[in-house]
Amino acid sequence: MTPNDRQPPMPGEAVGEATMVDLPSVRRLEAVGFRAWPAAFVQYDGSWLIRLTAGHDSKRLNCVNPLDPSDHRDIALRLEKAAKLFAEYGRLLTVRQTPLTPPQMVAYMDGEGWTPFSHSLVFSLDLAERDLGEGMDHLPIKDVGRFIDARILIGKEDPEIKAALTEIINSIKPECGLFLFEDRELGPTAVSLVVQDNDLAGIMQFAVAEAVRRRGVGRALLDASLRWARLRGAKKAWLQVEADNRAAIELYRKAGFTEVYRYLYRTPKV
């Protein structure tokens, strides 16, 4: 493996805990991840994928994504051009650093004092290794608006993002499953969006209401999401989770998910 196949440790880990990654797997999961959560504006600068979305502040929808470790020409100039494009959208230039980011670009950002934040993990699961049963005890709903209302309520997000979320979900091209758990007294308790892209299924927008956490609701929702994906031909599931979300990481690891790679975001020193 090349030096760039070794990932930096997450906050709180010792240097020796850095892990090795399989770059072909990273490339494939990055590609399906972009299709699963599409940006309104997409532009390539060489192999750098620039994604911007005026109506939503999601970091994944507003960042530069280097996709080839060998594409490191004119780093400062290209970042300057990208910064102007981000400014047109009223956003600060943000780079998403993954194992595909050129080491020279990482060194440049280090030298310029760029701020790292929002460390995340990407997990995957071989669905053949899970006994999910054959039947479906929970079916996805068709009402996108109802799903988004529940997601906003559970996540305690600004209701004004509903229009942007609706546009994003409606623009997803692969088949989607919208899962919603509800309680007669509590209302919406859990949601997940499953995006099936050929043999891969992404678990997105996964959220469980605080009032029902640690009661098995999250595991039931995850199983229902995975069961639906497998019945439609998915062989492997994947998801992304922020590194400081310990409860979610525990849930996913107990369900059999294992880490594939890590990423973080960086912005220029202000």
Results as ranks from 00 to 15, higher is better:
residue 69 P to Q: 08
residue 63 C to I: 06
residue 41 F to P: 09
residue 230 R to V: 05
residue 224 A to V: 02
residue 23 L to W: 02
residue 85 L to R: 14
residue 91 R to G: 03
residue 34 F to Y: 14
residue 248 A to V: 03
residue 22 D to L: 01
residue 228 W to A: 00
residue 219 R to Y: 01
residue 151 R to N: 03
residue 91 R to K: 15
residue 60 R to M: 07
residue 177 G to K: 11
residue 218 G to R: 00
residue 95 V to K: 03
residue 260 V to T: 08
residue 245 N to I: 05
residue 7 Q to H: 01
residue 151 R to C: 04
residue 265 Y to I: 09
residue 247 A to K: 07
residue 100 L to I: 01
residue 144 V to P: 01
residue 96 R to T: 00
residue 130 R to H: 12
residue 183 D to I: 13
residue 126 D to E: 11
residue 69 P to H: 09
residue 220 A to E: 08
residue 158 D to Y: 05
residue 214 R to A: 04
residue 179 F to P: 10
residue 28 R to K: 15
residue 205 Q to I: 14
residue 55 G to D: 05
residue 57 D to K: 12
residue 33 G to P: 09
residue 254 K to W: 05
residue 135 G to P: 06
residue 208 V to A: 00
residue 32 V to M: 01
residue 19 T to D: 06
residue 206 F to G: 00
residue 160 E to K: 06
residue 251 L to W: 03
residue 21 V to L: 05
residue 63 C to D: 03
residue 252 Y to A: 13
residue 138 H to A: 08
residue 15 V to I: 13
residue 235 K to E: 06
residue 83 A to F: 09
residue 251 L to I: 08
residue 243 A to G: 13
residue 246 R to E: 07
residue 264 L to C: 08
residue 187 G to R: 14
residue 188 P to K: 14
residue 139 L to M: 12
residue 119 H to Q: 12
residue 67 L to M: 11
residue 268 P to D: 04
residue 258 T to G: 04
residue 226 L to F: 07
residue 220 A to N: 08
residue 123 F to M: 04
residue 8 P to K: 12
residue 132 L to N: 02
residue 159 P to Q: 00
residue 90 G to Q: 07
residue 244 D to W: 14
residue 35 R to I: 14
residue 156 K to Y: 04
residue 102 P to Y: 07
residue 160 E to Q: 02
residue 144 V to N: 04
residue 85 L to Q: 09
